[in-house]
Design a binder for these strands. Sequence first.
DNA 1: TTGTGTTTTATTGCCTCC
DNA 2: GGAGGCAATAAAACACAA
Length: 282
Amino acid sequence: MDSGRLFFDTSSHGNMLLLGNANPLFRGMRSVLNMEENPKRRPFFTLADDLIDEEFYDEQLPEKKRRLTPEQVNLLEKSFEAENKLEPERKTQLAKKLGLQPRQVAVWFQNRRARWKTKQLERDYDVLKSSYDSLLSEYDSIVKENENLKSEVVSLTDKLQAKEAAEGTMMVGQKADPPLPVTADGEAVVLVTVKVEDRLSSGSGSGGSAVVDEDGLQLVDSGDSYFPADDDYRGCMGPVDGMQSEEDDGSDDNQSYFSDVLAAAEQQHHEAGEALSWWVWS
DNA sequence: TTGTGTTTTATTGCCTCC
DNA sequence: GGAGGCAATAAAACACAA
């Protein structure tokens, strides 16, 4: 430890004396000084003028570290506000004005810069956090909206399924009078049902179509479809959980709707809106 | 009064710049 | 190499609850 830095030179600065903690005299005085503490206790470092007529220093007590007075701090703060770096000349002037050692002024500025930096970091953190919170809430609302759209798709899909099934049954039912045809034509009814489910579950119409085509039921397949094309249909179905199309390779614009909510939420929302309105319109 | 957490003052060691 | 800045740290001073 550099003891030269720890002790104030009493010859250069009036009656100031500070002993290091290692000094037994200082340690002994600590308890005494603590007992003498009172609310009006004068600070260790005061203006040079005040040092002259104070009997306090007559005793030349070895002093503890004292805090600066509010006046000293105010002046230092003002100086810091003007310029947070301290040129040698300003340091000397401030020290003279405040009755402090230039070294103390330099230390105060150093510590003040450290405090400022800490506060600045806190401010930066707050800004980042509020920005993050805002984005998070935006993300949550988009996810919620996404869920709503998905459930709407599922609901409409169910309705469509029921409607297609009903129409398919009617067509076959024209040949078989009973509500549930169980004759040779009844097989066609079953196949129609499979066809609809297949479309909804796999998104690939080829497999289901093959079965139906074999039975010559083209009318049910696409000729009377609610959808202009299979691609469009699958585009609407793609996003529904558990009903993912096998062709969901991202090549189709509609297929990518649910792939990255954050990346293109607004655009995707728009696309979903179009798909849905088209669906309802059909 | 005392224990504990926070703030302030000061030191130390390292680094950079001139 | 000396001066000054910074990060880390020590320790005194202070605030405050129990």
